[in-house]
Design a protein around this nucleic acid. Structure first.
Lengths: 216, 216
DNA sequence: CATTTGTAGATTGTCAACAATCTATTTTGA
DNA sequence: TCAAAATAGATTGTTGACAATCTACAAATG
């Protein structure tokens, strides 16, 4: 396939290095969402600074993002801790809002997504099946997030994506702690497979019906 | 009323000084929401730094908050500009989400709000009436925001309030530019008066009905 | 002349030192 | 002894200097 003399087709890797605050933000966010930092856990700037070998500047900026995102709360001159959400608010505010965003995105999807996007989503389904077979809940819920993330990110403006992202992050953190209520992992895979099928067909009516039960 | 010898009742003013980032954040946010900074306007850290006489640290933190809030967008190493939202997203995502949040809050209000809160809200209605009489649209829409802000802030957790705040900020900025579609300023006042009445009565059924048409 | 390469200035990103504030503990004074 | 005041240590807030990156324009190259 790759010919050493064929320099025409050679490509250097894209520089994937982002800013340090981006790195710090993602790192802390993942720790919270995946449950490694539980509600109430304290974030100390100097401690994180030493662990990541980064000055406090970028760390403070990352904390401001996380705070606005609603994953941590800062008490001026005192401390910043990981938040704890009330069940009621999760059910009445976060869940329906997320549903509405994903419905909106899914209905635009057929005219927005490219072949690459669909290939990516197909691949996620494949990996979901694998994760389900291996009873790997962590991986499955990770793929779940990535599936919807891709659709929303492509069908909605950056500002709106930020809102969806903050909501789904909080939900993910919440349900990981509570444990999935799904009857089986296989059901999760099936539901996503159907969803992707409906998006491809562009049948907005049935997309709405499907999302209605999917969320529950 | 105030007796110079009556030192018992003397109170110093609360130290209202917040952190600089808070100050900078509010300042920029207001400029955007009130339309003094239009979509596409560029934010230069050094420029703001000089104008406010504050170092770039707090300004950068404020920008991170505004970015996560969705009012500005930063392109790494390039620039940060005030965002522009699509009409479609405003209608399908922001408006229903805000409505849902305010419905949730209003339904809890009767058992949460104190006499002080109700006094505050009554006072806002009075001021609204004044603003309406004087055809002062700016002041009216400011009071409108403050009215709902108070209710939501008291009936919902800080993390949820942040979401509502980010949404209502974007809507405010949007509609200020487009101009109010209300038939008259007096209608706005009436609707809020009725709303407050319904909240006092705790009639959740009618609150829902009222909010339904209020938003439109 | 068109394209690439190399600057200069502007702007954002990062850092380390210093200042302000809070908490917990100790000291003081009655 | 007990409450108020002072103090020390920890932590967050702010600053100014320096580094990295981008844009636009000038210079070089063919």
């Amino acid at each position: 396939m790759t010919n050493p003399n064929d320099l025409e087709n050679f490509q250097f890797k894209k520089n994937d290095t982002v800013s340090l605050r981006q790195f710090v933000y993602k790192e802390i966010r993942e720790a919270i969402i995946k449950g490694h930092l539980e509600p109430g856990a304290r974030l100390r700037e100097v401690e994180i600074s030493k662990q990541m070998n980064v000055s406090r500047g970028p760390i403070r900026e990352a904390i401001r993002i996380l705070e606005q995102e609603g994953l941590v709360i800062s008490h001026p001159y005192r401390e910043t801790v990981v938040v704890d959400l009330s069940e009621e608010e999760v059910i009445h505010l976060l869940v329906p809002t997320r549903r509405n965003f994903e419905l909106f995105a899914a209905q635009k999807a057929v005219s927005v997504l490219t072949d690459d996007d669909f290939a990516y989503l197909d691949n996620i389904i494949l990996n979901m099946q694998e994760a389900s077979n291996q009873d790997d809940l962590d991986r499955l819920s990770d793929l779940d997030l990535k599936f919807h993330e891709r659709i929303v990110e492509r069908c909605v403006s950056p500002a709106m994506f930020r809102i969806w992202n903050s909501i789904s992050g909080k939900l993910h953190a919440r349900f990981l702690i509570q444990g999935y209520s799904h009857s089986s992992l296989q059901t999760v895979v099936e539901e996503h497979r159907e969803m992707l099928q409906l998006i491809r067909s562009g049948d907005n009516e049935r997309i709405e019906q499907h999302l209605q039960k999917h969320i529950k």
